[in-house]
């Protein structure tokens, strides 16, 4: 994967000057048209507000420190009408026109076949990902990682299985809530291939803080290859680690699916690709060689309050076997 190319260098530079340091979640380092539009809106409003602040407070200071008691009634009336009514009216009108214009083309308006479709379901405290248009027209099931095309609009269909969440990739665009019983559609787009972090923005309970995800934007061909590869990930019919497969079936499969062709039967992420994800626990802990084993052993310490039952009854060998099984899924 290529490192991110940032097409709009100027605004991030100003951002850095003000902010002093960078974040992979910064709205001020936009990497897509929607985020860029809004970042520009911010900087326009920032400088305008600074000017308004200086003028009003300057007036207040002069009034308090230099006034001599000879103010004419006309001038005072002018101050109240001009400063209180005319000035804000003009500013606000301009701002509304600008914002309506700028917001209009951020909406998920139909763009025909061009928009890439993706379905997201929020869960306490992870993200279910589905690609409705897999290589053979079948749905691909995944979790906590999202692959999208670069340079092409993406329609994210967002809903939830439990409480309200909010889907947000700050560098690609605004956020939209996941509401029970409703599917909302958010339009995002990445200018260039790269890795973008996302998170849950609506308080959703114990581990709201650790409900992240990662978005990978690819060139079109790379994306097609990636999706085709994901679609084929399923437990091998003759698994090498028989012990692990049986254990997974007995201990994990009531909630987790290990096949990208099927949805998890319970409120738990699809584990078919878990070994090759960059993070575990919804975009939080780096997925190093030991991460999976540590997770099964101490997940209530690592992410307390998550909904997975404690697996204390498994021995270290059994955990090893399950982990090896998941790592071995092609």
């Amino acid at each position: 994967m290529k490192t991110t190319r940032r097409p709009r260098r100027l605004l991030p530079l100003v951002a850095l000057a003000v902010a002093g340091c960078a974040s992979p979640l910064s709205t001020l380092e936009p990497a897509g048209p929607a985020a860029s539009e809004i970042a520009l809106l911010w900087w326009v409003m920032f400088w305008a507000s600074l000017a308004i602040l200086l003028v009003t407070l300057g007036l207040a200071l002069i009034a308090a420190l230099r006034a001599t008691g000879h103010g004419s009634t006309t001038r005072n009336r002018l101050l109240v009408i001009g400063g209180g009514v005319l000035w804000p009216t003009a500013t606000i009108t301009g701002l509304i026109v600008y914002a309506v214009y700028s917001g209009q083309h951020l909406m998920a308006v139909p763009v025909g076949e061009r928009a890439f479709q993706i379905e997201i379901t929020g869960h306490q405290f992870w993200w279910e990902v589905r690609y409705p248009d897999g290589p053979d027209g079948a749905t691909i099931h995944d979790a906590n990682e999202i692959h999208i095309p670069a340079g092409r609009p993406v329609d994210v269909h967002i809903t939830t299985e439990d409480v309200i969440h909010s889907f947000w990739v700050p560098r690609l665009g605004g956020k939209l809530d996941a509401i029970p019983g409703i599917t909302n559609v958010l339009r995002i787009e990445a200018d260039a291939p790269g890795t973008y972090r996302g998170l849950c923005a609506e308080f959703c309970g114990a581990q709201h803080a650790r409900m992240g995800f990662v978005v990978y934007a690819h060139e079109e061909e790379a994306l097609a290859e990636e999706l085709a590869r994901i679609a084929e990930i399923a437990p091998a019919p003759e698994a090498q680690e028989l012990d692990g497969a049986a254990l997974f079936e007995a201990e994990c499969a009531t909630c987790h699916s290990a096949d990208t062709a099927s949805r998890s039967p319970g409120p738990a992420p699809n584990l078919a690709r878990v070994a090759e994800r960059s993070h575990i626990a919804a975009g939080w802990f780096p997925n190093d060689s030991d991460a999976l084993r540590r997770w099964v052993r101490e997940h209530q310490t690592l992410k307390p309050g998550n909904l997975m039952p404690v697996m204390d009854h498994l021995s270290d060998e059994e955990i090893d076997a399950v982990a090896a099984y998941l790592e071995a899924i092609p």
């Binding site: 001599t68 009336r77 101050l79």
Partner: peptide
């Protein structure tokens, strides 16, 4: 955003009152 207008009216009325008077701190 409309609510900014009545708020600004209050703000400038305070400034105008200070301006009209001989304020002390």
């Amino acid at each position: 955003m409309l609510v900014a207008i009545p708020t600004a009216v209050q703000f400038f009325a305070w400034i105008a009152t200070l301006w009209a008077g001989r304020p002390y701190m």
